Simulated assay, not measured.
Amino acid sequence: MIAGRLLVVTAVEAEAAAVRAGLREPTVTVTPVGVGPAAAAAGTARLLALAEGAGQPYAAVVCAGIAGGFTDRVEVGGTVLADRSIAADLGAESPDGFIPLDELGFGETVAPVHPPLLATLRRALPAAAVGAVLTVGTVTGSAESAKALAVRHPDAVAEAMEGYGVACAAAGAGVPFAELRTVSNPIGPRDRAAWRMREAFDALTAAAATLA
């Protein structure tokens, strides 16, 4: 259980509804902020600023929702906790492969998770897979791209589209950040028959019960 006023942001209302269904305390605000890192950063920053301006700042912010999973590292329907959020496609292409932004010298692509907040979530969700969660602007849709991501990020457990943006907003406001995901599909070729949305939403509701 996380102490203090908690902000949980999701990409879409369906994810927010799944989180709300698991909550037992009114001290948690759950709000969808949009799909993708830019919308997530802008929406989260606004919510944090409004709360601070009202004299009721949040104690922490959690980015929550469903995600694609590296299925040799986490099963479909499983729960994931980020130990860091990585902007996996922020950088440049080159003849020798992808160059991350930090290697170009223009900034950071890795956003750390608040260690005490992660520790609290790990105690509450001991079965969750823990590792890097990748933030992408374009969902991976081929076996070749999935393999390249897995090689570049050997401890990554999932990919989604908002975590890094939420982390940047949280860092700017000085608010602890964490990312919680449940896996709806394998990363790779788009195979709707392999998607397990209901299982992922049910797992998200179950995980949300540990937040408050």
Rank of each mutant, 00 (worst) to 15 (best):
M1Q: 12
L7D: 07
L7S: 05
V9N: 00
V12R: 09
V19L: 14
R20N: 13
A21V: 12
A21H: 08
G22Y: 05
P32R: 07
G36H: 09
A49D: 10
L50D: 15
E52Y: 06
P57N: 00
P57I: 00
P57C: 02
Y58S: 03
A60S: 07
V62Q: 01
D72F: 04
G78P: 08
G78A: 08
T79C: 10
D89Q: 03
S94K: 03
P95D: 11
F98T: 10
F98C: 12
L104D: 02
L104R: 08
F106E: 15
T109I: 12
V110T: 14
A111P: 01
P116W: 07
L118R: 06
A119D: 15
A119I: 06
T120Y: 06
A128V: 07
V133T: 13
V136G: 08
G137H: 05
T140E: 08
G141E: 06
G141Y: 10
G141P: 12
A143Q: 10
A143V: 10
A150F: 03
V151H: 08
D155G: 14
V157G: 06
E162C: 01
E162L: 02
Y164D: 07
G165F: 01
V166T: 03
F177D: 12
A178W: 01
T182C: 11
T182E: 04
P186H: 11
G188I: 05
G188D: 11
R192H: 14
R198P: 11
A203D: 06
T205A: 15
A207K: 05
A209I: 04
